[in-house]
Design a protein around this nucleic acid. Structure first.
Lengths: 118, 118
DNA sequence: CAAACATATGAACGACTGTTCATATATTAG
DNA sequence: CTAATATATGAACAGTCGTTCATATGTTTG
């Protein structure tokens, strides 16, 4: 599915610019991974969880009460956040405490907030 | 659907921390908007479009050829990007050129890439 | 005006996502 | 070991999303 499509009949294309942009584009896989990362941020429940972890390390049950959600729902979402390496678990007996994985998370959310607040 | 749920029977909750975090949380609406913003970034087609616009202003047809997509698909996605105020149109005759709306877009994507590249 | 062209839009369809419910795993207390 | 508790997981279902196809809108040319 490449090259044979009849888009606008190729009549309006600015070839030189297109060629230059094509050369500068990162690899498809990298762009895909980047979209996957943002997809993890793209849910209000997960955003709330991350924001809560801004302040303190919290266990699953804490988060559930804090957000008024089922333990199961929170656990499922923490799995997604963990898979995206945005959150890190620390086991202490029966309890599992979660915290932000690194400072990229803080930076990204803060940067996003700036755009939203405009 | 609030307050009556039997989450863990509230036995593990660290009340003081939960209370403190609750106070620091931004308004629900703001968190929702933030998630909406990231949702827009959370699709590889839209990421590709944004990345293309890093380099140059492009018309719909340019983007379509560049990414091997239908004109319709690109137009639909540009609508989403425009609604999220990530992209700005400039009309010139029949042609509509799109460019990045502001530098937050560049910054956010760059920051995301850092996380992915680790 | 009509024809050609660039873009936008609406309906429809398959794929994906988040929650719920039920249940499994793991750890501690008695 | 058994009961209680904290978390994880799987199946299922409703809702959302991105693409395609057909068509509409708006602009320029002749």
């Amino acid at each position: 599915m490449d090259g044979d499509i009849e888009r606008c009949g190729f009549l309006c294309v600015h070839e030189d610019v297109v060629r230059q942009v094509t050369e500068q584009m990162p690899a498809d896989e990298q762009l895909y991974d980047l979209a996957e990362l943002f997809k993890v941020f793209g849910d209000s429940t997960r955003i709330k969880i991350l924001y809560a972890l801004f302040e303190a390390e919290l266990c699953v049950c804490d988060i559930a009460q804090l957000l008024g959600l089922t333990q199961s729902a929170v656990s499922h979402q923490l799995r997604v956040l963990k898979a995206g390496r945005l959150v890190r678990p620390r086991k202490d007996g029966k309890t599992v405490f979660y915290s932000l994985a690194d400072d990229h998370v803080r930076t990204l959310i803060a940067q996003g907030m700036e755009h939203v607040e405009e």
